[in-house]
Nucleic acid binder design. Structure first.
Length: 533
DNA sequence: CCGCCTTTGAAGATA
DNA sequence: TATCTTCAAAGGCGG
């Protein structure tokens, strides 16, 4: 479990983030036949590292080594801490053109999710216009320029936008003026509160400045700075209890990253300093799903809930307690951002299928790009914890009637992560089909290059679609290695072609076990193989 | 209409 | 400490 206040410099579990490839080894182990391939992968990785390092003209420290092989990459803390340090030291973190591509923003949903009433600050408006250049707009020249790769980019460790899509989803940030991204630490930052302990702690130089320096007691009543957001579906990402909070801080103390985070994922309303007016409007905070009650469970200090209450009362409050959602993790952020693109590329609409693609794309992302999302996620968590200091993931346990995913007692080696089961859904089918060969054929997404699936393009990788190694081994990866302009996501394909290439069908799989049959999304092109036809 | 599917990651729970 | 479980988003689909 991540340390919230390690004192090591980072905050809120930032240290546990960048381990995107943690399961790689496991998967690789399974695929003994791919040993040599792995070796090649290692080589690729090494070269990648070298290239990256070479490209990094900057003399800076560890951050410089950002593009690291998996092993090194597993030290997010240093990385992030360093990044932050640099950010703070160099006021130009967001200024320099080369930093333009390192926005901590999630743009895609901006309009829909975060702008309930459509009201936007000028900055936000600009932002919106830039948002989602959308699927394959070949001529986003201006944007292209913004993301143009250059040694300078790389030298700054800041993940440079390199996109297959002409424009990095996050690129729009570049449109942000410095005013919105005023770098550096706000002078008026108060000590950050440890969400767990509620004890204020001095900001560590290497950690992000708290965006909302709230006192433990005040936190609960503080309006969510992001409270303007209202997701499209009417389900707020985060929401503020009705009635809103009073916003105690005339000026939002927020550093560059935070402001970007806020302004993006959470809302452009945040940008303007007139936020206090916003909250009085009671706009729900995106994290709160059901703004039934304005009162959030008391954060430590001045909350009434501190008082001893009868179980009934407590229960009542519990019921009324708005559902504060978990902060999105890096992948979720990525998904939100990229989903629309994938959907546009492919004919499919089923999220399950889309998510598989996204999962692969995720792995095909360069470390720098992933780092951006990890950073974003970290900020999200940080923000979330500051907004809801007493919130715990456990609070949401049981609120979602989750399917009971049956365990697979017959397969000892699968008793790993649930999500690892999910990573290899073919196992179930495999059981029913009873052969490794079949298993390899069971690709939800196969040879579709546009709908991506780096792994699928490699027959040898078929049984390990989602592993990073696979991604690295994919055709796209090497490109990424050589240039941040790699186009792992293949948006270069024309939509029509892509549409053709990306068709999925639902396949019902008979499962020999208790579960009977099961439906799966399978790429049409692989259906035949899958079905043994 | 609710839950499943599917992905990764974070965090809580459990052994 | 290691492993397992739940939930976060999303939207089509099935019962």
């Amino acid at each position: 479990m991540p340390q919230l206040n390690s004192g090591g410099g980072d905050d809120l579990g930032a240290n546990d983030e960048m381990i995107p490839f943690k399961d790689e080894g496991e998967q690789e182990e399974k695929a003994s036949e791919r040993v040599s391939a792995e070796r090649d992968l290692d080589d690729v990785k090494s070269s990648l590292v070298n290239e990256s390092e070479n490209n990094s003209s900057s003399s800076d420290s560890e951050a410089e080594r950002r593009p690291l092989p998996r092993e090194s990459f597993e030290k997010p803390r240093d990385y992030l801490a360093e990044a932050v340090r640099r950010q703070q030291q160099e006021a130009g973190f967001f200024k320099g053109p080369h930093y333009a591509g390192y926005p901590f923003l999630m743009i895609p949903d901006l309009s829909g999710h975060y702008l309930p009433n459509g009201a936007l600050s000028p900055g936000a408006r600009t932002y919106l216009q830039m948002k989602w250049p959308l699927l394959d707009v070949p001529s986003s020249a201006g944007l292209k320029d913004a993301r143009s790769p250059s040694p300078a980019h790389l030298s700054n460790k800041v993940p440079v936008v390199q996109h297959s899509h002409h424009m990095h989803p996050l690129t729009p940030l570049i449109t942000y003026s410095n005013e919105h991204f005023s770098p550096g630490t706000p002078p008026h930052l108060s000590p950050e509160i440890d969400p767990k302990t509620g004890i204020p702690r001095p900001p560590h130089p290497s950690e992000l400045s708290p965006c909302y320096p709230l006192s433990p007691g005040a936190v609960g009543q503080i309006p969510h700075p992001l409270g303007w957001l209202m997701p499209q579906q009417g389900q707020p990402m985060y929401s503020i209890p009705p009635g809103g909070f009073r916003y105690p801080y005339p000026t939002l103390a927020m550093n560059a990253s935070m402001s970007s985070l806020v302004s993006s994922r959470f809302s452009p309303h945040m940008v303007p300093p007139h936020h206090h007016g916003l909250h009085t409007s009671g706009i729900p905070h995106p994290a709160i799903v059901s703004p039934v009650v304005k009162q959030e469970h008391s954060p430590g200090g001045m909350s009434p809930s501190m008082n001893s209450k009868s179980p009934i009362t407590v229960k009542k409050e519990e019921e009324k307690k708005p559902h504060v959602k978990k902060p999105l993790n890096a992948f979720m952020l990525y998904m939100k951002e990229m989903r629309a693109k994938v959907v546009a590329e492919c004919t499919l609409k089923e999220s399950a299928a889309i998510n598989q693609i996204l999962g692969r794309r995720w792995h095909s992302l360069s470390r720098e790009e992933q780092a951006k999302y990890y950073e974003l996620a970290r900020k999200e968590r940080q923000l979330h914890s500051q907004l809801y200091p007493t919130w715990s993931a456990r609070d949401n346990y049981g609120k979602k009637k989750k399917r009971k995913r049956e365990k697979q007692p017959q397969q000892p080696h699968q008793h790993q992560h649930q999500h690892q089961h999910q990573h290899q859904p073919m196992h179930e089918a495999e059981k029913s089909l009873g052969s490794q060969n079949k298993k390899q054929c069971i690709q939800y997404f196969s040879s579709d290059k546009s709908c991506d699936s780096p792994a699928s393009s490699h027959g040898s990788m078929l049984d390990s679609p989602a592993t990073p190694s696979t991604a690295l081994a994919s055709p796209a990866a090497p490109a990424a290695t050589h240039s941040e302009q790699a186009q792992p996501l293949s948006l270069t394909t024309k939509p029509e072609a892509r549409a053709q290439m990306c068709e999925f069908v639902r396949v019902t799989i008979w499962r020999g076990d208790h579960s009977g049959c099961k439906t799966r999304m399978v790429d049409k092109s692989s259906t035949g193989t899958f079905l043994g036809m």
